[in-house]
Design a protein around this nucleic acid. Structure first.
Length: 497
RNA sequence: GCGGGCAUAACUCAGUUGGUAGAGUGUCAGCUUCCCAAGCUGAAUGUCGCGGGUUCGAAUCCCGUUGCCCGCUCCA
């Protein structure tokens, strides 16, 4: 019972944020007037500012330093890139469902869920009912030196034998036989075509990650920037994955934006820089005001690492629906550059002047989700407070992230106050995103800005007319101080630094 | 992809046994207001997600579809 109530409250937060996001212009559903497009979202006037600020903070933190260069690679890349990266082969998940108990299994891990004894038994009886041709294929696999699990998996992944084996395999969950659906294969990459003709000869993919654009430019960047190891290359850009399920607002979408930095190091330095970047990246979220208690590392256990990784951890944020990854930090070893060297035939080695050694660098990857961070910052900022027996909705966004930095009001819309307020607006506008409002009661205007996350409101009142000072109201504390209008620009520049 | 829930104004929702839609909030215009959203007057807004069907008549019943949420699954 208590659980259910808790869940309801949690769900409400996401719903409230989605509702607020639409109402105030942060996020709209893609193609909404046509009924929407699954898993795609548009950023509205305030959302695009928040997203831009978020990316800018990342860009400054990650590239305004001696040892990191920026890059913006094309979304479309040579198809061989994705063969080298492993995405063509590994980015697919053939899956089956048990019609009886509705359990779903990945074909490549199904064998692990069945005992060796059982598998041997199934395989022993399997040759029955096979055509001669298939029997040959079957024997070929069985005569290898692989483990029984690998043999079983090999047959499951064999186009001709798979269905036959599934017929005689029991569901690991409910034990029912012969109730598996056909394996469905999903390649999570979006495919399209270069040029006017749609044929497999000119198929290309929308990149499923920005990282490969960095890897293939490793030597270009290194040569042109004269960088020496260790150094990094950073990039912000869209990536696309044809996810089976989209979920949780901006958290799992088919089109999303990444902020990735690949740090090239001597192989012997990998652990040092992996640890260093872990801390640096975690601190970034904290510095931008994300609640510390809702941040943690989730280290990947050694047996669950991706094929390219030696070490991996996620920076996770406690969303209303649970912990979710907002950034991955990986030690990718020399996997990527070695693969590209192999597939392109172009040496990717680095020559170390000091030791006179030639080697392929290791890569420490920091891969942050811009869209996911956006959602995390938004959810984290959402607050409802009781003020004078009323609920105040306020987005406590860090001033650096806030879409609008300063709102400027005349206390009343007469007596020369609007003119002064307009002058103040004009003076600040070239330096920061400002907003002018003269409509309705001033309290209402304050609350409206609270919902937008605007950290400061300037109000021109009667006293301004005589001594030139205005009130500056701070969003979170709702406290005011008087500042001379000519000091405002400096005041805010310091506050927003 | 499976199962469940939901879909009515910008937002949150109401809509009785089928008779062509309402409220609150918000928005806009004006008045009032010297500092924290509920003062006054007035106004705009919906082919009731979309497409079929049943019916004299569908927001309401049936089928399909799309989207969102939850669970499972998945997330190299």
């Amino acid at each position: 019972m208590r659980c259910d109530i808790g869940k309801q409250n949690k769900d409400n937060v996401v719903e409230k944020v989605v509702s607020l996001a639409k109402r105030k212009g942060f996020v709209f559903q893609s193609s909404e007037i046509y009924g929407g497009l699954n898993g795609c979202w548009d950023y509205g006037p305030l959302g695009v500012e928040l997203l831009k600020n978020l990316k800018e903070e990342w860009w400054k933190a990650m590239t305004y330093r001696e040892d990191v260069e920026g890059l913006d690679a094309a979304i479309l890349m040579h198809p061989r890139v994705w063969q080298a990266s492993g995405h063509v082969d590994n980015f697919t998940d053939p899956m089956i469902d048990c019609k009886q108990c509705k359990s779903r299994f990945r074909l490549d891990t199904l064998a692990e869920q069945i005992s060796d004894k059982k598998k041997e038994k199934i395989l022993r009886h399997f040759p029955e009912n096979l055509s001669d041709e298939l029997t040959e294929e079957f024997k070929g696999i069985m005569n290898s030196d692989e483990s029984v699990t690998d043999k079983f998996t090999a047959i499951l992944e064999n186009e001709n034998l798979s269905a036959k084996l599934l017929e005689v395999t029991n569901c690991p969950n409910c034990g029912t036989q012969g109730q598996f659906t056909e394996p469905r294969s999903f390649n999570l990459m979006f495919k399209t075509f270069v040029g006017p003709v749609e044929s497999s000869d000119n198929a290309v993919y929308l990149r499923p990650e920005t990282a490969q654009g960095i890897f293939v430019n490793f030597l270009n960047v290194q040569n042109s920037s004269r960088q020496k190891l260790p150094f990094g290359v950073a990039q912000i850009g869209k990536a696309f994955r044809n996810e089976i399920n989209t979920k949780n607002f901006l958290f799992r979408t088919r089109e999303f934006e990444q902020m990735e930095m690949q740090y090239f190091v001597k192989p012997s330095d990998d652990e040092k820089y992996y640890a260093q970047w872990k801390e640096t990246r975690m601190q970034w979220y904290k510095d931008l005001g994300m609640t510390e208690d809702k941040l943690r590392f989730h280290d990947h256990p050694a047996d669950k690492l991706a094929h390219y990784a030696k070490e991996a951890t996620d920076v996770e944020y406690l969303f209303p629906f649970g912990w979710g990854e907002i950034e991955g930090i990986h030690n990718r070893t020399d996997f990527d550059l070695s693969r590209h060297e192999e597939f392109s035939g172009k040496s990717q080695k680095y020559f170390d002047e000091e030791t006179k050694e030639k080697f392929i660098p290791f890569i420490i990857e920091t891969s942050a989700g811009a869209s996911r961070s956006f959602m995390a910052f938004l959810v984290d900022a959402y607050n409802e407070e009781e003020v004078n027996n009323e609920t105040r909705v306020v987005l406590k966004l860090h001033p650096k992230l806030a879409p609008i930095k300063v709102a400027i009001f005349p206390l009343v819309n007469k007596d020369g106050m609007p003119e002064i307020a307009r002058d103040i607006e004009k003076g600040l506008r070239p330096y920061m995103k400002v907003f002018y409002d003269s409509k309705g009661a001033v309290g209402r205007r304050y609350r409206r800005q609270d919902e937008n996350g605007t950290p400061f409101c300037v109000t021109v009142d009667t006293q301004t007319l005589s001594d030139g000072t205005v009130t500056v109201r701070e969003r979170d504390s709702m406290e005011q101080e008087r500042i001379h209008k000519d000091e405002l620009l400096n005041y805010f520049i310091v506050k927003l630094k």
